[in-house]
């Protein structure tokens, strides 16, 4: 009986990456929580491979972030709170959903302006028919 904890301890030290298979790569059992976690993972940028969201990256650190997100969501945290935590660590760069603030306003204002300007141009062409 005393052998079991000893073996377990030996495994912990020697078995290589013991974090290999857990919430980093395995779904939460509650489908609603898993859906929340997935939506968040889809919008967090991998800091190692940079082009991809952590939900589609093979980098170790992306896996660590997936694990952290699933753990937090399972513990009842709101996805936005977890996003805010990660932004607090890595800055705005880590979220694919830009925060709305003065510096990012052009992202919404430029298309709006294009729509208004285009609408104005179109309206000038409509209505008065030349015979």
């Amino acid at each position: 009986m005393r052998l079991v904890p000893l073996l377990f301890a030996a495994m912990l030290v020697c078995a290589g990456p013991v974090y290999g298979q857990d919430l980093a790569d395995v779904s939460l059992s509650d489908p609603r929580q898993e859906a929340e976690a997935l939506a968040l993972m889809d919008s967090i940028r991998c800091v190692v491979c940079q082009g991809q969201p952590i939900s589609g990256s093979n980098a170790d650190l992306a896996g660590d972030m997936r694990r952290l997100i699933r753990e937090r969501i399972a513990a009842g945290d709101k996805p936005e709170a977890v996003r805010a935590m990660l932004v607090g660590k890595y800055g705005d760069w880590v979220t694919f959903r830009p925060q709305v603030k003065p510096a990012t306003l052009p992202l919404w204002l430029v298309p709006l302006l294009a729509l208004l300007a285009g609408g104005w141009l179109v309206s000038r062409r409509i209505g008065r028919r030349r015979s």
């Binding site: 919008s43 705005d92 880590v94 694919f96 830009p98 510096a103 992202l107």
Partner: peptide, 14 residues
């Protein structure tokens, strides 16, 4: 010098 990311949530919603 600010680094931001713009991805699927922005494009899909706009």
């Amino acid at each position: 010098g600010d680094k931001i990311s713009v991805g699927a949530p922005y494009f899909n919603s706009v």
